[in-house]
Amino acid sequence: MATATAAGAHEAHEHTHYTTTGLNHRKIAMWAFIGSECMLFGSLITTYLVYKGRSVVGPFPHQPWTDPVSGKVFPAILDIPVTSASTFVLLMSSLFMVLALAAVENKGKPGYEGLLGSSKFWLASTAAAGVIFLVFQAYEFTSFVHLGLTIKTNLFGSSFYTLTGFHGAHVAVGVLWLMTMLFIDIKRGLTPKDAINVDIMALYWHFVDVVWIAIFTLVYLIQ
């Protein structure tokens, strides 16, 4: 579905054509897409919650588990300090994103000089934060596998990796989009005219952040 949205980019021709609302075609489509994504992540989160506590074997998210056959003890899987750090990084990326948008919208205006007024700097920071989040997730997944939880182990593994994996895939698409935008900025420089494109990308990015806010509480913190 990310393809469907991305396909909207560079597509609209509202600058030469009359529109009913005066709004940008792609921005309307992006909000409709985000509405649709609410249902996708709603279904994924619902499934995780419905299956919570229904795994017949461990390991489990919040309690240690002793394998009755081998007698091996598995610790509680979720690592709150690490995930809190990655959550913080993703929250900050949203700040960088709005600052990047402000820098593009106000390019050349007083107060937007130097590094802190540079859209390149903020776009790069946002992308970097996205990459750091993904690195955290990769670290998290590998350490869970080492602790004995794969996607095949139990219902918790199946629903956990599917939910967070889908979110990670959305972050990855966002990073790709950010890097493309950064590339354009370096190549020809974004101007206030391009602000709408950054605005639409920002909506996607913030939505991915908002989904993580829900996941962090519902999956990680509530036991």
């Binding site: 909000w31 409709a32 509405g35 609410c38 249902m39």
Partner: peptide, 15 residues
Amino acid sequence: HHLFRKLFTGPLIIA
């Protein structure tokens, strides 16, 4: 624009 609010909150409520 209020339209965006509707496009977002409607689906969110149904979800």
